[in-house]
């Protein structure tokens, strides 16, 4: 063995470059068409970006000035302090969690039957399925803040409107996810139920539901996590939760309390993520056993 170090291999290769080039011409050919295509795509992306920055009135002066102010804000945020309102904030946080929990649960319960209507292996009629799916898509494409504004008109300001808003916007997402889970479910249990004389309802109850329930439960938990985040902002339009205080305090520049609230939210979200991650692994693990 001659103990060749990588650098000497590189040196050898560089010295014999012409020989190697002559031996493997196709490896050294420049792919002109490919490069042109890449340049065109890159040019289009950057061109649109430049146009966007012009159209949206980006200005370096504003960005620099704003960054200076942001730096000032960051200093003012220290040290985070509740300003003697810890109890109030804690209550708002509980409200936020309540909104997320009830919203997610309501959405899951409402979406559960609808998802079966949107699944190919339950409703073979393509038109009915198409109608249900498009309906779910419409619900899904309206943002949760818009739903909150609409529900505030119905039940008034407060966390109840927030819970209803989260329920509404999640029905669409759950319906889609659930129906996909039902469609990818193992066919054999359902066939077994039908072969032993079960009706269509028996097929769903004993052939499909036991298989999909753990998947659905883990999706619901996942959404609970993300809804905790949504519930923190829903107060911006007056639908309860900690967002109300956050908006108020940012507007009046009580930055120490803002920092405190953000920290509270970060800790809560981390705890919820951890708990629901454990639960999700337990549920999925239970299904795999």
């Amino acid at each position: 063995m001659t103990g060749r170090t990588p650098s000497s291999l590189r040196a050898t290769a560089l010295a014999e470059l012409d020989v190697i080039r002559a031996r493997h011409p196709e490896q050294f050919r420049t792919d002109i068409a490919g490069r042109l295509r890449l340049l065109a795509v890159l040019g289009a992306i950057l061109g649109l970006a430049a146009y966007g920055m012009w159209a949206l009135e980006f200005s370096l002066a504003r960005i620099l000035g704003g960054l200076g102010r942001l730096g000032g804000f960051a200093l003012e945020m220290l040290p985070p302090s509740a300003g003697g309102r810890f109890g109030v904030f804690l209550h708002a946080l509980a409200e936020t969690l309540g909104i997320a929990f009830l919203g997610t649960l309501t959405a899951a319960i409402l979406a559960f039957p609808v998802a079966f209507l949107a699944a190919r292996n339950v409703v073979p009629n393509p038109f009915a399925r198409f109608a249900v799916r498009r309906g779910l898509d419409v619900i899904r494409s309206v943002d949760v803040l818009i739903w909150a504004l609409i529900w505030i008109n119905v039940v008034g300001l407060g966390p109840f409107a927030g819970a209803l808003a989260i329920a509404c916007s999640d029905v669409g997402a759950f319906g889609k996810l659930f129906s996909e889970a039902i469609e990818t479910c193992d066919r054999r249990p359902a066939e077994g139920v039908v072969a032993s004389g079960g009706s269509a309802l028996h097929r769903i109850r004993f052939g499909l539901i036991p298989g999909v329930l753990p998947v659905l439960a883990s999706q619901v938990l996942y959404f609970f996590e993300s809804n905790t985040r949504s519930a923190t902002i829903i107060g911006i339009v007056g639908a309860g939760g900690i967002g109300q205080y956050l908006t108020e305090l940012i507007r009046v520049l009580e930055l120490q309390q803002v920092a405190f609230l953000v920290l509270m939210i970060l800790v809560t979200v981390a705890v919820i993520d951890w708990v629901s991650g454990r639960l999700r692994r337990a549920i999925i693990g239970g299904a795999a056993r």
Partner: peptide
Amino acid sequence: VPEIVFALIFVIAFGLGPM
């Protein structure tokens, strides 16, 4: 931190507008 919270803070720092 949700994007709208960033937006709330940035609106004060940078002024209103799509940027």
